[in-house]
Amino acid sequence: MLIKECKGYELEKEQSNTSEDFFNRSEITFKEDGVEKTLHVLYVRYFDEIFTEFTPYQNDPIFVQDGQEVMFKDIVALVCLLKNPGLRERKRLYINSKQEFASYFQNVNYHKLPGIFLSIKQSNGYELRSPLDFILQPQ
């Protein structure tokens, strides 16, 4: 699987009676078997305020890679796909439970994430051989 792009953004209210401004969207675009796909993860914006509870990151941007600021919302879809490779077959994922959201971030090898963003920027993609390479294994 070739990861082509990881990005996140805050939704904005389109109409006065909607609640988009309470949510963020994170997207990962990848190519698998010659087919380009995008997974959209919609989640409650509040989780961006508490990510320090379940990640080693202390503030946004979570890291700067080759001059590019990477925000927490940029890694959400990536982490979800790494933790649950079955999401490759889905287009959308909605998470509104803090417990479910935090579970995606357990046992992730955060030290390897900057390499994905560096490769995307320098080589227009990152070849993901196995999602297990990004999951910490019990000792």
Score class of each variant (00 low, 15 high):
L2K: 13
I3K: 03
I3M: 03
K4T: 13
E5D: 14
E5G: 08
K7G: 07
K7E: 12
G8L: 03
G8I: 03
Y9Q: 04
L11N: 08
L11S: 06
E12C: 11
E14Y: 08
Q15I: 11
N17A: 09
T18H: 05
D21K: 15
D21T: 14
F22W: 04
F22C: 04
F23D: 12
N24W: 06
N24V: 05
R25A: 07
S26N: 01
S26C: 03
T29A: 14
T29E: 14
F30L: 12
F30I: 12
K31M: 15
K31L: 15
E32K: 13
D33T: 13
G34A: 03
E36D: 15
K37I: 03
K37C: 05
T38V: 13
L39H: 02
V41N: 09
V41T: 12
V44T: 10
R45W: 06
R45V: 06
F47H: 07
F47P: 04
E49V: 12
F51E: 01
T52I: 14
E53G: 00
E53H: 07
T55V: 03
P56V: 01
P56I: 01
Y57I: 00
Y57C: 01
Q58N: 10
N59Y: 14
N59D: 14
I62N: 01
I62R: 00
V64D: 13
Q65R: 12
D66H: 09
D66W: 06
G67Y: 01
Q68L: 11
E69D: 14
V70Q: 07
V70K: 03
M71P: 04
F72V: 00
K73D: 08
A77I: 15
L78E: 06
V79P: 01
V79Q: 03
V79H: 02
C80D: 08
C80V: 09
C80S: 12
L82V: 02
L82H: 03
K83F: 10
K83I: 12
N84G: 02
N84M: 07
P85R: 00
G86T: 11
G86Q: 13
L87G: 04
R88P: 01
R88M: 09
R88C: 08
E89G: 08
E89P: 02
R92I: 12
L93R: 09
Y94S: 13
Y94T: 14
N96M: 12
N96S: 14
S97R: 13
K98C: 05
K98L: 08
Q99L: 14
E100V: 10
E100Q: 09
F101W: 08
A102D: 10
A102R: 09
S103W: 05
F105W: 04
Q106S: 10
N107D: 09
V108I: 15
V108Y: 02
N109L: 09
Y110D: 06
Y110V: 07
K112R: 07
K112I: 00
L113Q: 10
L113S: 11
L113Y: 10
G115P: 07
F117K: 05
L118Q: 10
L118E: 09
L118W: 06
L118F: 08
S119T: 09
I120K: 10
I120C: 10
K121I: 15
K121M: 15
K121Y: 15
Q122A: 14
S123F: 11
S123D: 11
S123Y: 11
Y126I: 02
Y126F: 10
L128Q: 02
R129G: 05
R129E: 07
S130D: 08
I135P: 00
I135N: 00
Q137R: 07
P138R: 06
P138C: 02
Q139W: 08
